[in-house]
Design a protein around this nucleic acid. Sequence first.
DNA 1: GCTGAGCGT
Length: 100
Amino acid sequence: MNIYVANIPFTSSVADLKERFEQFGTVTSAKIVIDKLTNRSRGFGFVEMADNSAGREAINNLNGSDFEGKSLVVNEARPKTDTQTGGYGNGSRGGFNSRW
DNA sequence: GCTGAGCGT
């Protein structure tokens, strides 16, 4: 269960996310996307959890919640390199891979 | 001592 976390404040780090998601389940790996060029946080990251149910719980609970004074955005991440059969094309927001 | 879209070295 990989989860996409956006609207992360720049004063936050991966340990904060990991802690925040460990409230709902076991976090396999958490990472904040740092821009390769500027070496600065882009404000979003990815959290991978062990249980899918815990991931759903974390999404439903942490999405839109208060995080460092800002509303956190938590969604399910789309597969980075997986069988993108069907082609979501240049899926900007909205198109999610419903693998449920 | 940088900045707020949003899907990753």
